[in-house]
Design a protein around this nucleic acid. Structure first.
Lengths: 329, 329
DNA sequence: ACTGAAATTGAAATCGATTTCAAATTCTCA
DNA sequence: TGAGAATTTGAAATCGATTTCAATTTCAGT
């Protein structure tokens, strides 16, 4: 492998001058520039990235922690993050936590070893108090999932309100018996959404039935499982408000398989408005989250911090969302 | 930031000894080990990754090039790759090409700058001849997509045979008018599958109708589009063999929306056996690819090369697959 | 107590770039 | 023409680790 010293030797110049050419510094004569360029070509020289990172004290790499690569929600979030990263020539180190606290911890340690310039979290596995120590090691941006007392930039939605309008929609459709499938129990996002759900029921004098509250439902299989539980009940809900289109699609499929009609026997409301929402039968009524925008915004904040060195403080950015009515409710 | 020199100074030892402790070398006295450990803790010291990479001449990072993060097929491929990478403590630099030749080129150049120890390709955008120059810069492993005369380790399926048995299944179901939706035109994988399709038709004396051959169909939207084209035809196929479950799901949804019955009016055969295949109505008959295994195998080959320094040559590994009959055919 | 082997430790070189500082050269304009 | 400024270039320090080589100390077994 050719190094900068080889180029210097071949041209008869110093490493400094070669470096100046590589980095387009002014005050290098045209003649030497050409000389160096030719030598680099001839030697098939490429600067060693590790050496540059060491010297420049930055890596131009951002770690993105996602719980599950195969969950399309996070794929779209990544897509949003990637679209902005690409524009600024930043690399993405994709880290899958599989909801494992230790993995999350290990990945955050990339900040300590200066392997990345920043971390974007799309979920939170550990207690936030335990994660605060990493803040001094480099910028952390939170997106999608959030944490009320986290003093870091955050991008997300008003999930209480999301839960509220979704539930209200079902009530307005005439439902009195409404179930709720939430995501993980440790998720503040899910808890907020549930709070919105409860608020809507309360306002309309409807009771919250705890046997109709399902936890940890976040994919197709989870949706199917919930339906099976519902089918085993004497008293069944007539509508379900679900935390993701994946889960909702699983519910519709399983419910139909057991002879229920959607929405007559069971109305299903999704969340996200993913592609899958258009191919269920009937198509899903859902609350559209601007997933890619959430990712973009998060990466833009990161860029403000690490590239433009702005002091962004810890803004809590809330993006808008809306209900999209299709056939499932 | 504390460096190894700070630890050395605090302990009164040399950097060498500290380094030995960090790397668990033998021949360091218990006493000094404790001393160094304490100092590291006290100074909150973490070794600088860039410095280590520079010195060790390896990055423990693999670049994975995928065309599209939001395509679930590649998400599962990534999942397979990641599962093995995690086991060996390798980082994944995820690079989305968006089917762009220049991006692919740029990402492959990570090998030249020694930013990654190897590259896994899951698709190919440039002419293979143009990519061969990168082989000398570091190991390249091909998975999913392949290239007949590429002298690099490759993991995939016998797609000709896949196309053949899929088509044969439709023929055995009594269909005489069969359409085919393939992926990108530059994909050898897609071409092989199409070859299998043609072979099956030929063997049964059925003609290939070029207006029933759809190119570039690779997601839900593509499937819907193809159905709209079919509906506009005077002579319609009675069955479609599609290159992905995504596309097949889109077709079923759109066909039903226009009043076609599945499979009576239009039989749809998918490919991959993704989660979505179980929630369409009727559920999808499909050819199951062991997607995650493909990814795992590819990463295992990479590990044989970069960790175990095996001379793996350029094996072409072909994994098995099978047809899963559900309701759509 | 002595000898050869093993254990323990440190000084200095090295990985491959960038940047500072200063020296040498060229330019500008009174 | 000469002084001061601007341009051009290189030597050496630096980023933060690892490793080689050699020196010293300790150990095992007579």
């Amino acid at each position: 492998m050719a190094t900068i010293a080889d180029v210097a030797k071949l041209t008869g110049l110093s490493r400094s001058t070669v470096s100046r050419v590589i980095n387009h510094y002014p005050h290098v004569s045209e003649e030497k520039i050409r000389l160096v360029r030719d030598a680099m070509e001839q030697l098939n020289y490429y600067p060693n990235a590790s050496a540059q990172k060491l010297r420049n004290q930055k890596t131009d790499t951002i770690a993105v922690l996602v719980p599950l690569l195969t969950n399309p929600f996070f794929a779209y979030l990544l897509e949003g993050i990637d679209s902005v990263a690409t524009k600024y020539n930043l690399q993405l180190l994709v880290c899958q936590t599989k909801h494992d606290r230790e993995k999350e911890w290990k990945f955050l340690s990339l900040l300590k070893t200066k392997q990345v310039d920043g971390v974007i979290l799309t979920a939170i596995e550990n207690e936030w108090d335990k994660l605060t120590e990493f803040i001094e090691d480099g910028p952390i941006v939170l997106c999608n999932e959030y944490e009320k007392n986290a003093h870091v930039p955050t991008v997300g939605l008003d999930q209480v309100y999301g839960g509220y309008i979704g539930t209200k929609h079902l009530i307005e459709k005439g439902h009195q018996h409404i179930a709720h499938c939430r995501g993980r129990m440790i998720s503040e996002l899910s808890s907020d959404r549930e709070a919105g759900f409860r608020k809507a029921l309360n306002e309309h004098g409807l009771a919250v039935r705890k046997e109709w509250m399902f936890g940890d439902v976040s994919d197709i299989e989870g949706g199917k499982r919930a339906v099976r539980e519902i089918l085993a009940m004497k008293e069944r809900p007539t509508a379900v408000f679900t935390g993701s289109d994946q889960a909702a699609a699983g519910m519709i499929s399983e419910a139909k398989r057991h002879g229920l009609r959607i929405p007559e026997d069971l109305a299903v409301l999704g969340f996200d408005d993913q592609q899958i929402a258009t191919i269920t039968d009937p198509p899903l009524t859902t609350i559209k989250q601007p997933i890619e925008e959430i990712g973009q915004k998060a990466m833009e904040l990161m860029i403000d911090i690490i590239i433009y060195k702005k002091d962004v403080k810890a803004p809590k950015i809330r993006l808008p969302f809306k209900l999209i009515e299709r056939g499932s409710t």
